[in-house]
Structures are given as C-alpha cells and as structure tokens.
Amino acid sequence: MNAPRAARTRAILLAALLSAIAFELAVLAWGESPGSILAQLFAGTWGTRFGAGQVLFKATSIALAGAAAQIALRAGLFQIGAEGAIAVSALAVGAIGARLPASVSPIVAWPLLALVAASVGALWTLPIGVLRARFGAHEVISGIMTNKIAGALVGYLLARGLAERASVHTAPLPPGATLVRLGPFPGSAANVAIFVAIAVVVAWAWIARRTVFGREVSAIGASDTVSLATGIAVGRRQIEILALSGAVAGLCALNDVMGYKGYAEEGLSSGVGFTGLAAALLAGRSSVGLLATALFFATLSQGGLSINARIPMEIVDVVVALVILFVAVAPRIDEKLGEEDRA
C-alpha cells in the first residue's frame, strides 16, 4: 500500500511544481512580478476577515460538489451531471422556500428545504444511473446532456412564472428559511452550510470504508465484472450511487440559495459542478484531501478577483486546467523518470 501512496505523493508534487512554473511564466509574460501577484492574491483572500469568509463560502459549494464527484468515482463513475443537479435543486429550493409562510421557523424550514435540495438532486441524476446500468449508456454523455437540459429547464420555468414579476429570480425566502452567516467573517457570504459540507465529506469517507454498501461500491470501482461474478448487484448499486451523488450535489442550494442569495436565479453557482469534479480528481479518496483542495480552488477563485486589476483573473482558470492536466499525466511522467533512474 505504501509504494502507490508514495508514487501518488510524488505525482502530486510534480504536478504542483509544473503548475507553479506555468503560472510564473504566464505572469512574467504579462509583465508582472509573480511574487507580488501572489502576495496580492493572498492579501485579498486570507489577508482579511471578509476575504477569508468569501473563500470559506466558495469552498463550501466546491466541497459538496467534490463529495458528489468523489462518491461516484468510488464506483468508477464520472458524475458530470452534478452541474445540472445543482441548478434544478437551487431552483426548487428557491421556488418552494419562497412559498413558505413568512413566519416559518428555521426548525421546520431548514430540514424541509435540505430534503427538497437532496431529493431533487437525486431525482435529477437518477436517469443517468438508469441509462448506465440498464442500457449501457456512458454516464459522461448522459451527464452532459442532462446538464444542458437542466439549463434550458431552469430558464424555461423562471420565464414561465417561477420568477418574480419583472425580475429574473424567484421571490425572496422568508427570514426563517435563510441560513445563519458566520459571525467571525463580517460582510462575507460564509454561512453554516459549511458544517453540512464537512459532515457530508467525513460521513462519505466513513460509509465508503465501514459499511457493506461502501465496500460493494469500492469493489465495483475496482472491477465491475469481478463484482458481478461475486454476486454484487452492480447495476442497482450504480443507480444508487449516481442518485446519492446527485443528492449531495443538490445540497449546494443550501449554501448558494439559503446561505447567500436568499432566492434562486439562472446561472447561480454555475461551473461549481466541474470545479468539484476537479477537486475530487486531485484529492483521490481522501476526505481531508478533498476539503484541502476545495479550500485551494476557492482561494484561487476569490483571489482571482483581487488580482483582476493587474492581470486578467482568467489566469486562475488556466492554472486550474493545467493542474488537472498535470495531475492526470504526472503518474506517467513519474514512471518514466523512474525507468530512467534504473537504466
């Protein structure tokens, strides 16, 4: 077990080094100094309570989307459909939340809306699992298609009555349905949904290692043909895992709708599904790793805003893309370097 882990650590370090070099080159090409850009990026994020709060807020959604991806990856499946699940769940929470009585108590509203978020997310990704398990359709293709359908559906429903008159968003949630902001980070959108995210990430690590369900899912991820031969209901587990993954993705609505905006609108939290997948690919099976990569990507995303006046913040997207590519190819580079050492 130690050798692959050491190889993985080497690969991650190698990827980090290559990404850092790419970042430096891009900044130098722009005519700026990498050190001072990094200092400004840091000052704009962890340097102030507001900046740190914004990072925590963004990390919450990335961690939830990341957990959704990690859950599916355990079974060897790519959950591309998280993006769509996040969009429809956010709309459902916004539309249903706005119809709750103005005096609703958080004791009723929070669990109710969390249930709405999770079940809508699960229902949305259920067809992806069914298509995969019953018809052999690749979950990536179905995921891309359902994401696009989700985007059109959300736009359609908002235009046909779910949006408040003369606006592009749902009516505001009653005060009892919004989540409590975190006191130490005044002005920022950081809210108690972050504890939900941490709980989900940790709970999945436990379920995956300690329950029969988790072990069966891990076995399917290792080899679905062997699993089938040993009597595991592979198709059924695949459907369950993609629905569970969708449920977790749907919980992003807690952070974005209940914790931040107080209503749902088109394009809210778009792209988070993919950032979450990237975080999960980097973190592997580790829950601590997932929370750390979520913080890392959130720092880059928030930091991009603080350096935008000096260098286009899109450099952050470029760096994230390169990190994913380098992490993907690093094991191979590491292997090649090892071969040369022995030669």
Binding site: E314, D317, A321, I324, L325
Partner: peptide
C-alpha cells in the same frame, strides 16, 4: 474525459 474537461476550461479561460 478528464483531459477533455480540462481542455474546455483551459480554452474558456485562456
């Protein structure tokens, strides 16, 4: 798939 998604992000940001 990983490569393709990363390249889309690279293209959008780049």
């Amino acid at each position: 798939i990983v490569s393709g998604l990363a390249l889309n992000l690279l293209a959008a940001g780049g």
